[in-house]
Simulated assay, not measured.
Amino acid sequence: MLHAGRLGTWWRGWRWRDDRGDTSIQMAIVYPFVLLATIAVVQASMWFYARQIALTAAREGLTAARAYQASPADGTARAHEVLERAAGDSLRGYSVSVTSNGQRVQVQVSGSAMSMIPGVSGLQVSQSASGPVERWTVPGE
């Protein structure tokens, strides 16, 4: 018959030997999910940043295109200036289109965000801004 004190010691020793390598197995199971979540957060951040760059370029292009006696070409040029300065590798393959009907101007900037996954072209980004064309008016008309 085992003494109560010896039984507790025996049980703790047996349990300790039984758990060896448990942490390594747990890390092997959990680590891929942690890595995947980290990559997803970084990819989402890069997509959001590319959207902000596209929106900034669209807004700047709109400001230039809607100015008094400005043309859509002025808006396109200004949007390209902003993209060349700010986009870097964050917004790739971008394009700018400016449309005007004489009353309103719309500037649309499209491209793709940089991808963390090799071989994948990235997430598509498209932002636009629109506003009325500035014009000279006579008070009271």
Rank of each mutant, 00 (worst) to 15 (best):
V120C: 10
L7N: 06
N101G: 09
A58W: 01
L2H: 05
A87G: 07
D18L: 12
G131V: 03
V42H: 08
V133A: 00
T23P: 14
H80Q: 12
M27S: 05
D22A: 04
P139Q: 12
V120M: 13
F33R: 05
I117C: 04
R135P: 04
G93Y: 14
V120S: 10
S110V: 09
T23Y: 15
V120Q: 14
A28H: 15
R12G: 08
L2P: 07
Y68G: 00
I53K: 01
A79T: 06
W136P: 05
V138S: 00
P32R: 09
P118D: 13
V109Y: 14
L7I: 14
P72R: 02
M27F: 15
R51E: 15
M114D: 07
N101P: 06
M46P: 03
S115T: 11
A73T: 09
A54W: 01
I53F: 15
P132R: 02
Q69D: 11
T63Q: 12
S90A: 09
H3F: 01
A28F: 15
V41A: 11
R12M: 13
L35S: 06
A57H: 07
G61W: 14
Q108A: 10
A70L: 10
L35A: 11
I53V: 04
R135V: 02
A50V: 09
S115M: 12
V82N: 05
I117S: 14
S100T: 07
N101Q: 06
V98S: 00
V107H: 01
S128K: 00
A54T: 05
A58P: 04
W136R: 05
P118K: 05
V42D: 04
M114K: 10
A129N: 00
R6S: 08
A28P: 08
V105T: 04
A87D: 10
Q43D: 09
A73I: 12
R6H: 11
E141A: 08
Q103Y: 13
V41T: 10
A87P: 02
A28V: 13
V105C: 01
S112R: 13
Q108F: 08
Q43H: 13
Q108H: 07
R104S: 02
Q26V: 10
A44I: 13
R20N: 02
G111K: 04
S128W: 01
Q43S: 02
R104Y: 12
L91Y: 14
R135Q: 01
M116H: 02
A70V: 03
V42Q: 08
F48T: 06
G122Q: 10
V133K: 00
E60W: 12
L55W: 00
R12Q: 09
S95M: 06
R104H: 10
W10R: 10
L2Q: 05
R51L: 12
A37Q: 07
S97D: 02
H80A: 08
Y94L: 03
A4F: 06
E84M: 02
W11N: 03
Y68E: 07
S97E: 00
H3K: 07
S24K: 06
A40Y: 09
G8F: 14
D22H: 13
I53N: 01
Q43R: 09
S130D: 13
H80M: 09
W16S: 03
W47P: 05
F48S: 04
G75M: 06
V42C: 11
R92N: 04
P118T: 08
A37W: 04
T76E: 01
S90F: 03
Y68I: 03
M46G: 03
N101D: 13
